[in-house]
Amino acid sequence: MAISEAEAVVMDVLWREAPRTAEEILAEVGPTQRWQEGTVKSLLNRLLRKKAVHAERDGRRYLYTPLLTREQYVQQESKGLLDRLFGGRVAPLVAHFSEQRKLSKKDIAELRKLLKELDDEQC
C-alpha cells in the first residue's frame, strides 16, 4: 500500500491518538500544512479506499482509526527506500551517509552496538 507524503501527515495524527474526527485532524495539521477541511477529507477518503484507516459513524460525523500501524508503514517505506536506491542492501545506505558526513559520533556508537548485538546473535 503506497501512502503519499500528505496522507502520512494524516496518519501521523491518527497514530498519536485515535479515533479522531476530520475536524480534529484539521485543527492539528491545518495551520502548519495550510490545508482546508476539503483537503483533509479528501486525504481521509483516499486512506479509506486504501484500507489504511477505518471510519465509524458517530452521529453526524465520522471517527477515523488507523488500520495500518506505524511499524508497518515504516517497514514498508524503509524497504522501498533500500530497494529503490541501494539495491536492497543496508551497507551502501550507511556508506552514503558516512560519505556525506551525516553520521554523528552517537550514530556511529549506536551502529557499532547494533552490529555487535547482531554478531552475538549469529554465534
Rank of each mutant, 00 (worst) to 15 (best):
Asn45Pro: 03
Ala27Val: 01
Glu71His: 08
Lys105Arg: 12
Asp83Ala: 07
Glu17His: 13
Ala22Thr: 05
Leu82Lys: 03
Val94Asp: 00
Cys123Phe: 10
Tyr62Pro: 01
Gly87Asp: 08
Ser104Gly: 05
Arg57Val: 13
Glu24Thr: 05
Gln72Met: 09
Tyr62Thr: 06
Asp12Ser: 15
Leu118Cys: 08
Tyr73Trp: 15
Leu67Thr: 09
Leu67Tyr: 14
Asp119Pro: 01
Leu81Ile: 15
Asp83Ile: 00
Lys105Met: 14
Ala91Pro: 03
Ser42Arg: 14
Trp35Ile: 06
Thr32Cys: 04
Glu5Phe: 08
Gly87Phe: 06
Arg61Thr: 10
Met11Asn: 04
Val10Gly: 02
Gly80Gln: 10
Leu14Lys: 04
Thr32Tyr: 05
Leu85Thr: 05
Pro19Tyr: 13
Thr65Gly: 07
Val53Thr: 12
Val40Gly: 01
Arg101Lys: 12
Phe97His: 09
Arg16Asn: 11
Pro31Met: 05
Val29Asn: 02
Leu103Phe: 09
Leu67Asp: 09
Ala22Ser: 15
Arg112Pro: 01
Glu77Tyr: 10
Arg20Lys: 15
Gln72Trp: 02
Leu44Ser: 00
Val94Asn: 01
Glu56Cys: 06
Arg101Ile: 07
Ser42Asp: 11
Met11Lys: 06
Gly30Phe: 04
Met11Arg: 04
Pro19Arg: 07
Glu37Thr: 11
Ile25Gln: 05
Arg20Pro: 04
Thr32Gly: 04
Asp119Tyr: 12
Tyr62Gly: 07
Arg46Met: 10
Leu68Thr: 13
Leu81Phe: 11
Val9Pro: 02
Phe86Arg: 03
Leu14Arg: 05
Leu114Gly: 01
Ala109Lys: 12
Gly88Ile: 01
Tyr64Arg: 06
Asp12Pro: 01
Glu7Leu: 00
Ile3Lys: 05
